[in-house]
Design a protein around this nucleic acid. Structure first.
Lengths: 221, 221
DNA sequence: AAAATTGTGTTAAAGTTTTAACGGTATTAT
DNA sequence: ATAATACCGTTAAAACTTTAACACAATTTT
């Protein structure tokens, strides 16, 4: 069974946001919240909050609202945060290293178990307590260890090859930080962080704001 | 004038993707492309390609398609890539440093002009050729230099204060890497990179794939 | 204990986004 | 030079997402 009707991707994308806000509320010692309170905090309507949860069942109590901690747990379970996940990072450049050192992921159950690069100056050194190994050790490592997710932080020219490699090794999740579109079989999940795209989008809105400002100045004259 | 009907955000988000694919085509020496070729490469329909461009005018030629380089230019102009933009990075931790060293942004017209932190071990050192200054120098720096975008890579507890500060200094674009929702006036643009959210989303799909796999194994028995 | 209020789950309507359809123009082939 | 083809711009339809509405259950107030 698992899931009757396919949950829209756009709903899935909001689950981590709910989880984040519920964690905040919990840390602030708030134990109860209504869809409209939560919506206000998040900048969405109460309807959307209820509609989103409705996809998964019913977690609230009429006339009361939601129990913050219970709802947080439920969403955590849907996201699979109750299970520990392992990641390897391929490409120990600035970004790869930053991610390897970013301890926040561990709190949510994601731990980095291996880091790989081709640079002989890096191979053999350590990040936190993890050895940086040569990329040609990935196959062996994946055979000997369960790896759920591959984080790809290599230069764009190698992205495709690295993706094909990790897929062939049975890895089913790819966190792609390169600007390359990875074409993967349907039984592999890819989540992209396209930094340049994000920056360009921001640049567009900044441009629009500047233009609007100039217009208003003209009108004032 | 500037813009008759508001272009949907979702269309704006796709512009950098078009730009990326067109740059690829250009580099491969391909000078002409149809909406259906481009759509196939990007994994969207030709209708969507044409519909998206239709928002901004008409860049193609019936029976021929689009001139790759010309279209790339047009989209670049819409995004404002023809103008140079300056950024400061606030928070020189692993992520902040990685972004500061990430040279790729410069090709698209975005240059880092200042890096700030509170850590006395970092203040006074350099990243590439940029001095890391103490955060209390931001105001002065922004008065003396034109700054378009603030990149926020501080711990989440400081995010709101930093955002308020840079907004008060007239910065209109914020690239937010913290997991905090920034509530900003409507004349400020925020673009978020929520790494944890992205990872959790990936985790969800990996979980679904595992579950599906298990089901199929059961059925085979 | 009854009345009033709160606020969910759920269905229906409105709004957005994507895809399809097609007239017509430029290109390419004959 | 003419016919056939390619493919854009544009409008219309379909699909999806968000918001509104509301019956009713639990809570809170009187």
């Amino acid at each position: 069974m698992a899931q009757q009707k396919k949950i829209p991707d756009i709903v899935i994308k909001r689950l981590p946001i709910y989880y984040r806000f519920l964690t905040n509320l919990h840390q602030m010692g708030i134990s109860r919240v209504s869809s409209s309170d939560l919506g206000k905090k998040m900048g969405i309507t109460s309807s959307q909050v209820r509609q989103d949860f409705f996809n998964f069942g019913s977690f609230g109590l009429q006339g009361y609202g939601y129990d913050v901690e219970q709802l947080r747990q439920e969403i955590g379970n849907i996201l699979g945060l109750n299970k520990q996940r392992t990641m390897i990072i391929i490409g120990a450049g600035h970004l790869g290293q930053a991610l390897a050192r970013h301890s926040a992921f561990e709190k949510e159950g994601y731990s980095v178990v291996g880091v790989f690069d081709v640079n002989p100056h890096l191979v053999g050194t350590k990040i936190r307590d993890i050895d940086i190994q040569h990329v040609n050790k990935i196959s062996q490592f994946c055979r000997e260890n369960k790896v759920d997710i591959a984080v790809i932080t290599v230069p764009r020219t190698y992205a495709k090859d690295v993706a094909d490699l990790v897929i062939s090794l049975g890895i089913r999740g790819i966190w792609n930080f390169t600007s390359v579109k990875l074409n993967v079989p349907e039984d592999v999940a890819v989540e992209n962080i396209h930094l340049s795209d994000s920056l360009m989008t921001l640049g567009y809105y900044v441009k629009c704001l500047h233009e609007r400002e100039e217009e208003q100045e003209e009108q004032e004259e």
